[in-house]
Nucleic acid binder design. Structure first.
Lengths: 178, 178
DNA sequence: CAAAACCTTTGACATAGATCAAAATCGTTC
DNA sequence: GAACGATTTTGATCTATGTCAAAGGTTTTG
């Protein structure tokens, strides 16, 4: 899906991924912990978010079926995470831990390419997010998700969707009734 | 600085970098063009920015002496760029073009690591930027730059600094007089 | 299935920062 | 160095969105 691997390589890679099932609302990574895991979502939904000075949640990234991700900044730097990782619904995951991830990255050229692509895409995604935050109004951001990624609106509660759009839930409620 | 290279590798790498001097206010990449170049700033200052629907500039990234960068999204995907790259002052650059960059990335393991580190840092930088945009007030963002990166305040005009902070120049002017 | 806990909606009000306009400064050029 | 253009400051408004509070809804739980 993200890279091209030989049979042998796939064998080695799949040995590194361990299945894991988590229930709705489970915390996979709490604030201040160091992120040791990278996830492939087989089925379900998880998100990363952080909490601002006023105690409000800000959702950065939502992963649905067949997506990958983690609290990347903490995972890469092995520093305490600002971001929290949480299961939104019951979720089946495949997990690779930090040391296996970077062992593969040392040994396997095709994994390096894979990781590069992950980083490139993560970067582009963040970049689009910044563009939208600084150029679009709350309403435009909502309409943009409605158009580009409507599945999110089905999967997320209004509370979480609002935090993803960086607006208050009251504002989202008002936007929708128009 | 960013990676570890052997003498041989350094030789090869430096053959790919060409010196280039540009004058203040030169456009290195215009909107809609495909970014073909990656820059090392020897001396001077360049920025990347884009223009929102109201015609206002939004500065994403400022590179000073010994920094590296480019309009990364366009450079990576080889798609027309939303971002503009502009010299803020007269600037001496070293330039590597897209095909040399990715040739090195194919051939040279240490360059792969180097590129990974660039991407990791670029990602973290964007992430911090998002955190600050969504959690800090205009004043806090100004004070943050004042504290963390005061050299920017010397190098940039108020107009550009304001666009970097994502506030209007009038607001910045008012913030400063307090 | 009742009650507790949580989520969403609605209303009234507050405010940070934008907008528009006009002076005041500064820098560049002929 | 006068004059033009660009940048910065100041002032008077406007507005999108936040805040606070309360009322309905829904879901979870013993």
């Amino acid at each position: 899906m993200f890279g091209e691997f030989s049979e042998q390589e796939l064998e080695k890679i799949s040995n590194c991924f361990k299945p894991k099932t988590v229930l709705k609302n489970s915390i996979l990574l709490s604030e201040g912990s160091i992120c040791k895991e990278f996830y492939f979502i087989n089925k379900g939904c998880i998100r990363t978010y952080f909490i601002d000075k006023n105690g409000h949640e800000k959702t950065r990234y939502v992963m649905l079926d067949k997506h990958i991700g983690t609290a990347l900044t903490s995972f890469v730097a092995q520093r305490p995470s600002i971001e929290i990782v949480e299961a939104i619904g019951d979720t089946e995951l495949l997990v690779i831990n930090h040391s296996d991830f970077f062992s593969l990255n040392k040994e396997m050229d095709s994994w390096k390419n894979f990781y590069q692509r992950i980083l490139e895409m993560a970067y582009s995604f963040q970049n689009r997010k910044i563009e939208q935050l600084v150029t679009l109004t709350a309403k435009q951001r909502y309409e943009n998700v409605l158009k580009e990624n409507p599945i999110l609106i089905q999967c997320l509660s209004n509370r979480v969707l609002a935090s993803y759009l960086d607006i208050r839930e009251e504002t989202l409620s008002r936007l929708k009734s128009k």
